[in-house]
Design a binder for these strands. Structure first.
Lengths: 203, 203
DNA sequence: TCTACTTTGTTGTCAATGACTACATTGGCA
DNA sequence: TGCCAATGTAGTCATTGACAACAAAGTAGA
């Protein structure tokens, strides 16, 4: 046999990477710890040393996914000059990520939604909304948007884009292109925030 | 033994009902065909006569879920006088359903998103958006909303409320109440549609 | 009524899986 | 050098989904 070192050395990273590939190809259901061990040329018991059980592996995959997504969003938030353009860019970054990694996104959110998800996962997953809030507050102070609680408005934008992202990832936008739906959504939201929501309606 | 009749008679319904309960309690992963058979006091091979495999059972659960949800949405669409109020009611009906059946909703959409989901499932799942489009078109003709493609606007409203629903179902709205987020979302969307989206932005 | 046929349910079996345990090897550290 | 925790291996077990052979119950026609 070729002299395989006993210690793999980077087993954890190798498992994580291969797991992400498998999930993207076959979904979470297509992920098997034993098959994963075979792929990485390691015995079927080895993964247990790095991930207590399958759920722990999936959690780690989800966390890595959120971190990658957050990087994209932060980059987008600093592109462009116009505030509205930056807002649209962030929306696109979010949705584009979803389209690029549809299965991963499903895992990310279903894991985050899991009753006993880690605090780290929850907070990392909630980071995107902070970016939106900052942008909205800035636009209000610049007089581009009407007054209104930035926290609430950011939440509205987030949930709306979240829906767009999930549906785009699932190819459920019927005939519409992802680009078109994202633009329409961000534009409608921006128009609503610019016009302002009559307070009387909030009763 | 008690004289169990050989034929269960309503096995399919019993399996479906129990499966929905199990999913609501333990998620799809907690659903086992064999355990399901035990729960319904039937041999482990019996379910196969009604559902070719596990996926077929999950598909049936998803379909039943969509049908139940559509009923709620249609009811809401006919409540209230004011067009805006009816619009908000539909949004609330959708999100309320999600909150009442969080795990079921996850199954409904992940099943619908599945590459080889049935046409029946897809169309049943897309029914809600038709209701939204009709309401928007009506409001435009009444002069309450600005002009704009009703199809596109309905899509925007749908994706936005879909995100709200999923996050509400997952308890991911942070401190905000479901009622508050739904109201804020529908109001922002309505304000945007009433003000109209500058066509220049669509480039 | 007798008889074939279909539907529904039972029992037995198989390969694959996740989880667990006991054991072996490695590399770092005192 | 020698100890020891970390890492990986090998073996085992219960559970699961799927399948096949068989049995019982209902059904329709001569």
């Amino acid at each position: 046999m070729t002299d395989q070192p006993y210690h793999h050395g980077k087993l954890r990273e190798a498992l994580l990477g291969r797991a992400m590939e498998t999930i993207e190809e076959a979904g979470v259901d297509g992920l098997s710890l034993r098959q994963l061990a075979r792929d990485v040329k390691v015995s079927h018991g080895a993964p247990a040393k790095h991930f207590r059980d399958k759920q722990a592996l999936v959690d780690a995959v989800a966390l890595a996914g959120f971190e990658s997504m957050n990087r994209r969003i932060l980059d987008a938030a600093q592109s462009g000059e116009d505030l509205r353009e930056r807002f649209v860019s962030v929306g696109k970054a979010y949705v584009d990520f979803a389209v690029d990694h549809p299965a991963l996104l499903t895992v990310m959110y279903s894991t985050k939604h899991h009753p006993d998800s880690s605090e780290e996962l929850r907070s990392t997953g909630a980071q995107g909304i902070h970016v939106a809030r900052a942008m909205i507050a800035e636009a209000q102070q610049a007089g581009v948007l009407a007054a209104g609680d930035p926290e609430t408005l950011a939440m509205v934008c987030f949930v709306s884009l979240h829906g767009t992202a999930l549906l785009a990832a699932g190819g459920q936008l019927d005939g519409n292109s992802v680009e078109y739906v994202v633009t329409a959504t961000t534009d409608t939201l921006w128009a609503g925030m610019a016009a302002g929501v009559p307070a009387a309606q909030l009763n």
